[in-house]
């Protein structure tokens, strides 16, 4: 059963000089419990697409259904309630810099109106899951990028979400840290049955954790299907180009190793 459905979603940004078609007529669905990837070059509309899924960006036209409910038709209050079920993590982590790690994790529980003591206890459980219990009293400035992202993941888990949206969540991290964050996301997906949507420009991310992938090309959906199919037998030019680019990078890396 699809947990997120986009129907004919179009987003046009009104700029002074010209209208920018960020997304044109996108229709796709994300199945419950899967890890769904969206890949494309920068400017392809990936970030706008993921922001349409929790209505941080309101589509110019089309429908966004989460659990069968059209987000666009919801009242502000219902939308806020709905957003608690849709977690989100970001490229630059977006932690509150003036709060320590534990209080950052408490934030979504505060929003939900949970008692402070209970929230603080629960926060420790979520920090345990991401392996940062001992950093509870540290401030974000004292953490590495990978640690910050793990705090962000713990914070997302704190609202008990059914879906986690990841907007270039590993793009600011080194390859090794990327690996740990990806396996953490995979574990969360498996252990808690949380649906994960991953937006990225890195093939590696999609290959490592995604079940299905959508290829975006200049705001249009170029191709969608299981990762293996799309990567072994790409039909669209956009997918072919992404694969070609990666092959060139690998050749470059191999050549460098040879020297």
């Amino acid at each position: 059963m699809p947990v997120i459905e986009l129907k004919n979603v179009t987003k046009i940004f009104d700029e002074k000089k010209s209208n920018i078609h960020a997304l044109s007529d996108i229709t796709l669905s994300v199945e419950e419990g899967e890890i769904f990837g969206v890949i494309g070059l920068s400017g392809a509309g990936k970030s706008t697409l993921v922001r349409c899924m929790n209505l941080l960006e309101k589509p110019t036209s089309g429908e966004v259904l989460v659990d069968g409910k059209n987000l666009i038709a919801l009242s502000n209050k219902d939308l806020r309630l709905m957003r608690r079920e849709i977690g989100m993590i970001f490229q630059h982590f977006n932690l509150l810099m003036q709060r320590n790690v534990r209080d950052n994790v408490c934030f979504p529980m505060e929003i939900a109106g949970m008692k402070r003591r209970e929230a603080r206890e629960k926060a420790m459980e979520y920090l345990e899951i991401v392996g940062l219990r001992e950093k509870a009293d540290a401030y974000p400035v004292q953490l590495s990028g990978g640690q910050k992202q793990r705090v962000a993941i713990a914070r997302t888990l704190a609202s008990n979400p059914r879906i986690i949206l990841c907007d270039e969540a590993t793009s600011a991290l080194d390859p090794q840290t990327t690996g740990t964050i990806l396996s953490l996301l995979k574990r969360i997906n498996k252990d808690y049955g949380i649906t994960v949507v991953v937006i990225t420009h890195e093939m590696r991310v999609v290959e490592e954790i995604c079940d299905r992938v959508a290829v975006l090309d200049q705001g249009t959906l170029a191709e969608i299907g299981p990762v293996k199919e799309v990567f072994h037998n790409p039909r669209s030019n956009a997918a072919k180009n992404l694969l070609l680019e990666r092959r060139i990078n690998q050749m470059g890396a191999n050549a460098a190793d040879g020297i």
Binding site: R83, M97, Q98, P108, E110, I111
Partner: peptide, 30 residues
């Protein structure tokens, strides 16, 4: 205050009032 942090608060379902006090004012207290 970093726009990303405000966006994160919105994504958690925070209302305007929460964002004003707990994000805007608290984060810029220095």
């Amino acid at each position: 205050v970093d726009k990303g942090v405000i966006e994160a608060a919105f994504s958690m379902g925070a209302g305007y009032f929460t964002i004003i006090w707990k994000v805007l004012v608290t984060e810029s207290r220095t």
